[in-house]
Simulated scan of single mutants.
Amino acid sequence: MCGVTTATAGVLRVLGPRDLAEVRALLARDPVSHCFVASRVLTSGLDTWRMGGELWGWTEDGELTSLLYLGANLVPVETTPEARRAFADRCRRIGRRCSSIVGPYDDVAVLWSMLADSWGPARDIRASQPVMVIERDAPVRVPADPLVRRVREDEIDILMPACVAMFTEEVGVSPLAGGGADPYRARIAELVRSGRAFARIEDGRVITKAEVGAVGDGVCQVQGVWTAPELRGRGLGLAAMGQVVSLAREITPTVSLYVNDFNVVARHVYERVGFHQTATFSTVLF
């Protein structure tokens, strides 16, 4: 995509490897909120094929001020009002390619207000999702479950049903729908092989599990937290989360996650472990 100059003298363009230093500097403004995009950037070096999407940049007076990741998710980063207008205009023209818009509350709310007429209706809007962090030096305040460990490659088929159940419960649709079975299994297998899938497995079934879904610059993001429904309310998830933090800290010193504000039980668990809120995300689901 060629650069597009607007009346505000800003330029929107697809970024590539030569932009890596500027992109990393922009992401470093908030490593927690920008963990997902940073993970894509760090693993791909801004090679579009390896990144699984495009990273758009908005430049004003020669300075990179805003980013928008466009892949399976649409993720805004540090967007200025001018950048939001330019990003939204381009998104309207190319049509919706993503299954969700997710990111900092203000960025998502404004982008969605500009895109709703052409991209809507949304299947669901999660307007308030606390972003929570436990920093490198913060103690884990609960006893950890030593039976929670890294999942082995020969246990992928045991882990998969729990991952599907969690995703379906959380998002409202199965990740296997519409031809998604093979890509979803490949994603879970990748997490297992990289040592980023954790679970307590007994007698061939998953009791509790979680994954580190993104690894940014000094920060990782825990996703997919799940306990078997028939075992909830027994404190298993609390102890499991304590162990997940310990295992995740072997990947990066700071551990983050985000959670729906209406999930009071989960929020209470994370607070007891030692997480605290640093920002608020929103998600628009299609």
Rank of each mutant, 00 (worst) to 15 (best):
M1E: 08
M1G: 12
V4N: 12
T6P: 00
A7L: 07
T8I: 11
T8Q: 14
A9T: 05
V11D: 00
L12M: 14
R13P: 00
D19N: 00
L20S: 01
A21P: 09
R24I: 02
R24E: 13
L26P: 01
L26M: 01
L27P: 06
L27S: 08
L27R: 06
D30A: 15
D30M: 13
V32Y: 15
S33W: 04
F36A: 04
S39C: 04
L42Y: 09
L46E: 10
T48H: 12
M51A: 07
M51T: 02
G52H: 11
G52S: 10
G53W: 04
L55A: 12
W56S: 02
W58K: 03
S66Y: 02
S66V: 06
L67I: 13
Y69F: 15
E78L: 06
T80L: 02
A86G: 09
A88V: 03
R93S: 07
I94F: 11
C98A: 15
C98D: 12
C98H: 06
S99N: 07
V102S: 08
Y105Q: 09
V110Q: 09
V110T: 08
V110I: 14
M114A: 13
D117T: 02
S118I: 05
W119K: 07
G120E: 10
P121W: 12
R126Y: 04
R126G: 00
A127D: 14
P130Y: 08
R136A: 15
R141D: 13
V142M: 05
V142F: 10
P143N: 00
A144R: 10
A144D: 06
D145E: 07
D145M: 02
R150H: 06
D157R: 12
A162K: 11
E169K: 04
E169Q: 03
E169V: 00
V171A: 13
S174A: 14
S174Y: 09
P175C: 07
L176V: 11
L176D: 15
A177C: 06
G179Y: 13
R185Y: 05
R187I: 01
A189Q: 14
V192C: 07
G195H: 06
A199V: 04
A199N: 02
R200F: 10
E202R: 04
E202A: 11
E202S: 06
D203I: 01
V206Y: 03
V206G: 07
I207R: 13
I207S: 05
K209Q: 14
A210R: 06
E211Q: 04
V212W: 13
V212G: 03
A214W: 11
G216Q: 03
D217W: 03
V222F: 04
G224M: 11
P229E: 12
R234K: 15
G242M: 05
Q243S: 07
L247P: 01
R249F: 02
E250L: 13
I251D: 00
T252W: 00
V255A: 05
V259I: 15
N263H: 11
V265C: 01
R267F: 00
V269W: 09
F275S: 04
F275W: 14
T278V: 15
A279F: 03
T280P: 00
F281A: 04
T283A: 15
L285N: 02
